[in-house]
Design a protein around this nucleic acid. Structure first.
Lengths: 132, 132
DNA sequence: TATTGTTATACTCTATAACTATA
DNA sequence: TATAGTTATAGAGTATAACAATA
């Protein structure tokens, strides 16, 4: 069961890597940008807790995205220690296209199953991991 | 969907790591020993193709298992380049216990679902990755 | 010429300790 | 004292190139 779930996850991730290649976004980059896009001013610490990334490992990702001029760090208005993250205009443009691609991908993967099968699959997967 | 499949796989792997800790076997170690147990004399190359491991990365694992006196390398009877792998008596004893533990684990995870749900889940997961 | 096992190496991902500046 | 961001670093996991012995 663990084996089959892992293979399904890897298959979906493979398709993701393939389609996101034009944007040069790994899954974690997409997650970071998507969270910043929908939560402007979000802090690094919030990103870490949401995505399950350790702070030291996020620094390099944010640096790379900032060097590509997709996000900017701005001093947090009420906490002098924190930095609020925001998308640049080019970051916003990239994410509009990337999120359209991601939605199309999920739709294509889902198309291998009927809507009823999709609901069943998600339900059963949750049953497996919810009781951890 | 990729997200839910990944979480289910990680949950199963977590339980595996926990229960296999007494044997000091990672999932890949268990797979290697299990294959050697049921295919005495199997070569490193065969292990690599079966498990999707690259040859340079298998060397260290086999070295570690040999140092723990769980397996032995013997010259292959008909191919002077190859080494046949076999379990030592202590390796056989360890794997008898480890395989019992693994079977109990799979049964426990499966117990979160009815037999019909198990069949459905496996079927749907395969539908997702078979066309991958 | 091709293959088995191996070494060396590199790159990614993940994890811990410790520093700085603010709170 | 506790927290946010950062640096340095160490450990897994995974990848390629190249070599010796053998086919």
């Amino acid at each position: 069961m663990g084996y089959n779930a892992r293979r399904a996850a890897l298959a979906v991730i493979d398709v993701f890597l393939e389609r996101m290649a034009p944007f040069e976004l790994k899954p974690v980059d997409f997650s970071v940008l998507s969270l910043v896009a929908h939560n402007p001013g979000i802090t690094s610490r919030q990103l870490c807790t949401t995505l399950g990334i350790l702070p030291p490992n996020l620094v390099g990702m944010v640096n790379a995205l900032e060097k590509r001029a997709l996000i900017v760090r701005k001093p947090h208005p009420r906490d002098g220690r924190a930095m609020g993250l925001q998308l640049t205009p080019s970051g916003q443009k990239l994410m509009r296209d990337a999120e359209r691609t991601a939605a199309a991908l999920e739709a294509d993967v889902a198309a291998r199953l009927t809507p009823a099968e999709q609901r069943t699959l998600i339900t059963l997967l949750k049953k497996v991991y919810k009781t951890g």
